[in-house]
């Protein structure tokens, strides 16, 4: 919740930890409740004009330019050595309709770095938080206990338990690249230029202009998560739409181990 380096998993003795925790319990409860209230108050007053964050990194995915080549998936895999079977970034195919009236579209996916991240509010160890300086939602792999609560809470299925480290893992907008002034690896590699990365807090950035001038959508906006990944021309068809007479047949290919969206 601040810029200071987070403590990694110090292996304090059981007794020390317990005594310390109990002693600071009362104080910490009041502080955290107070902080929660304060955050709410800030959120309410963050109507246009008042500034809440200086920088909020975000992404626009222009689906018209996506050719479904999975270059972003592969670049992300190699950038982070993401183990087999799990993905920080992936591309879904959506096929709908019955011949001859059929369509196929692509839906590149990644963490939405939400402004109201449900994963953060459920984390019992404060191991995940939204960075003040750039709005990136990060995981401290030293504090995470692998309880998978955040994986349940994410409406986008963007989180997974890393089978090698056994802690929660997800896209972090390539912090190591972005902090050096580079673009995330998936943006860098996208052959069609479908991924546009930038600062949503700056009205003059390319990404802000793009959002202002185009019809954009977000995924599952009704969840109230305020995602910071926008889509242009995305097809939001889901398998449930197969029940509609004008669609009749929908096949979503997630290219993930979990074959279905959840």
């Amino acid at each position: 919740m601040n810029d200071e380096p987070r403590p990694t998993s110090s292996r304090r003795g059981l007794v020390t930890a317990m005594i310390g925790a109990v002693m600071t319990a009362a104080a910490a409860i009041s502080t955290s409740v107070f902080r929660g209230g304060q955050a709410k108050a800030n959120g309410n007053s963050s109507e246009p004009g008042t500034k809440e964050r200086k920088v909020q990194y975000g992404m626009v995915i222009d689906v018209r330019r996506c050719i479904g080549c999975h270059a972003c998936t592969v670049a992300c895999k190699s950038e982070f050595d993401v183990p087999p079977g799990v993905n920080r970034s992936w591309v879904e195919y959506v096929e709908k309709g019955v011949y001859p009236n059929v369509g196929r579209s692509f839906l590149p996916r990644l963490c939405n770095h939400c402004s109201e991240p449900p994963c953060v509010s459920v984390c019992p160890t404060d191991a995940t938080w939204k960075r003040e300086q750039d709005g990136i939602v990060v995981v401290d792999s030293g504090l995470c206990i692998g309880c998978k609560y955040c994986i349940q809470a994410c409406p986008y299925d963007a989180r997974f338990l890393n089978p090698v480290t056994n802690v929660a893992d997800k896209c972090d907008f390539c912090i190591h690249r972005v902090s050096q002034g580079l673009t995330p690896s998936c943006v860098n590699t996208c052959v069609g230029g479908a991924r546009i990365f930038g600062d949503l807090g700056d009205p003059d950035s390319d990404i802000s202009k793009l959002i202002a001038r185009n019809q954009v959508t977000v995924l599952r906006g009704e969840m109230g998560t305020l995602p910071n990944v926008y889509y242009i021309s995305a097809d939001h068809t889901d398998e449930i739409d197969a029940g509609r007479p004008e669609v009749r047949k929908v096949e979503v290919i997630t290219h993930r181990r979990d074959k279905k969206r959840r």
């Binding site: 998993s9 910490a28 802690v167």
Partner: peptide, 23 residues
């Protein structure tokens, strides 16, 4: 847990996560 040895991390903080309060 993914990291059973770290279960005590739950008791290093108090926050409003239901799992934390429940612990």
């Amino acid at each position: 847990l993914g990291q059973p040895s770290r279960a005590f991390n739950l008791f290093k903080v108090i926050n409003l996560s239901p799992m934390n309060i429940g612990s």
